[in-house]
Amino acid sequence: MLTSLYLDRASAIHRLHPVVKLFGLFVVFWSVFWVDRPLALVPIAVLLILAAQVAGAWPNFYAFRWFLILMIPPTMIEWMAVYRQGPPLIDFWFIHLSGAALRYGFGKGLRLAELLAASILFLSTTTVEDFSQSLINLRIPYRVAFAMSLAFRLVPLFMDSALTVVQAQRLRGYDFDQGNVFERLRRYVPAMIPVFMGALRRVNNMAMALEARGFGAGVRPTNLSAYSMTRRDVVACALLIVIGTVYFLLYLYGYGAVTP
């Protein structure tokens, strides 16, 4: 059973304002965007490792270890295929592989892994409530944020029912893995219909319970966010802005590029 990645700790990162954490995620995206050189990506990797240590997020990184490692090679290959500069090491038919292409591809792979790592870090330290609350702080309408957090609550429930349905049909001799690709896709129909209909049976119950609790009162719902901007948050923001600026400068002065 899949569960949310949140790890209940009280680290400095956990206690940051969720909007600041969201900003941090953005800054990582922003920074790695401007550089291609693997070497230029190393400081971000170091920062992420430090943050993971502070947040105690290693269990999640351990769970994703293969994913993080294995996402690098295909990304390298994809990008090396379009990178045509530099003296080729191999030049055969449509393959032109230069040393720069290798570095370039590796940089791309590393950057993707870093983005995933930053996301894992964010999810390890931020609860769904805080996330949806920070969306509301960022002017996302209440009902959209509410729909998101309610859907979150229902996912494990639906997943459980999906797995049960698969078992129930197997017991009646149904084989889900038969035939060619299209046939196999089609064979999911007897599993998907019960899950779907089970959800539909709930629509009226749920809408009714919502209204009975005052949903739709037309008042602006109270914001319960327990966070206020503290000194720690201001410091973190300043730090993040510095990092973002440095990376943009790296790009401006050409230090971030892979040279052929």
């Binding site: 009902r143 729909a147 859907a151 494990p156 893995d177 690709v181 599993a191 629509v203 919502l210």
Partner: peptide, 28 residues
């Protein structure tokens, strides 16, 4: 659509179904 409670619930159910079925139903 956000003004209608049933529509809000339907969007929630679509979301939960999509997320719940994407993962465990084995990929081909």
């Amino acid at each position: 659509m956000w003004r209608n409670t049933r529509m809000v619930v339907l969007s929630v159910l679509t979301a939960a179904l999509y997320a719940a079925v994407l993962v465990p139903f084995k990929v081909v």
